[in-house]
Amino acid sequence: MIRVPADLNELCDAFAVNNEEIEHYLDIETGKVIMWMDPIATGIRDEELDDELENGFGERYFHLPKIESREAYQLMVEFTEALTFSSLRDRLEAALSGRKPFRAFKDVLYDFPEEREQWFTFERNAHRRQVLQWLELNHIILDSL
Results as ranks from 00 to 15, higher is better:
A95T: 02
L88F: 08
L109G: 02
R116W: 01
N125T: 04
Q133S: 14
A104E: 03
M76R: 11
R3Y: 14
L53I: 09
E59K: 13
F102N: 01
E20S: 15
D7L: 11
R116K: 14
G56E: 03
R91I: 00
H139F: 10
F15Y: 15
N125Y: 02
K66T: 12
K66P: 01
D143M: 15
N138Q: 13
E123V: 08
I44W: 10
E20G: 14
L142Y: 12
F102M: 02
C12L: 07
L53R: 09
A95I: 02
R99M: 02
V4R: 15
E81A: 09
E21L: 07
V33N: 05
V4K: 14
L142W: 14
D46K: 13
I2D: 07
F102Q: 01
P65S: 10
A72C: 02
R60L: 02
L88H: 07
Q133M: 09
L109T: 05
F15D: 04
N18Y: 09
N125L: 13
M35F: 00
A16R: 07
R124H: 13
R99K: 08
F57K: 13
L83A: 05
S86T: 09
N55W: 04
E48C: 05
G56L: 04
S144D: 14
E21R: 14
G43S: 12
M76D: 00
L137Y: 12
I44P: 09
P65L: 05
E48Y: 09
E47D: 08
D7N: 15
S69A: 15
N55Y: 10
